[in-house]
Amino acid sequence: MNRGRIVDCHTHMFPADIPARWDWYAARDSCFAELTRESPRSRVREAWATPEEALRAADRAGVERIVMQGWYWRDMDLCRRHNDYMEGVVRAYPGRFAAYASINPVFGEAAVREVERCRDMGFSGVGELGPGGNGYPLDHPGLLEVLETAARLCLPVCFHVGEPVGHAYPGKDRTPIEGFYDIARRFPDLRLILAHMGGGLPFYELLPHVRQAFRNVWYDLAANPLLYDIRAVKAAVRLAGPERVLFGTDFPLTVYPRRRQGQDFSLFIEDIEEHAGLTEAEWELVMGANMRRLLESAGKGQNR
């Protein structure tokens, strides 16, 4: 398979003072605390990586481009700070990083303004949004405003999606997945990226009317090894088609905790290469070409 052209559509990078002053941030944002707390009972943990460390790991694994998803902070000021940080990373390493905007749609007009500011700074999308973590339903008026704005600006929106069944884990989003079908029908031109394989939504694309509604929906593979058997990659490709599945890791989250801790892209890539059964053409699309296409067209919509 062609290594070296891989795009990871789903990573998280934080300003250096966030891990350094974790207690302070955790006290301000319980969702952040839940997701990033180191637990002696769980081997899964949120690792931290600087851009330089991320690039070293990416170079080892053949990852050409790293897409930083924002964080679903409850506080809009933290969202703005995080976005400023990511903008600096994108500027410091041309061609290696791209950024999606942190926002909390509950803030309505302020969130919309932040989406527009991020677009002007060259961001490539909006997200990762966490409806469960931020406590809003998928028909929240603030969210609908944000989605309308994103559709107008041609910015894809990435949602954190949880499965309606299976084991509990920190940050599992209990938002009913049916709501994404409603969003897709309400905003047919909006490009949606449903993280973590869309909580199982690819299966419902076997229904022709669902498939039609989801023609602008992509599924990412972030954290997949913590959730599914590796056969799930092929299943998603069969169900949604290879054009709408995106490689992502949730880096620097440890997704093979029994094998390696932190700062690694390569284990998941190797697992896909050796065990997912993708054809060469499917590999090209899933591991890079699909996300490159989304990055190229991002932000080319209309201003108000």
């Binding site: 499965e163 069944v165 299976g166 084991h167 199982g200 690819p202 299966f203 419902y204 076997l206 959730l227 599914y228 058997d229 056969r231 799930a232 299943a235 169900l239």
Partner: peptide, 16 residues
């Protein structure tokens, strides 16, 4: 009728 979509979650080892 495909168990309403449950087969997909058989890809989760604990469901299988």
């Amino acid at each position: 009728h495909y168990g309403g979509g449950l087969p997909f979650y058989a890809l989760m080892p604990e469901v299988a």
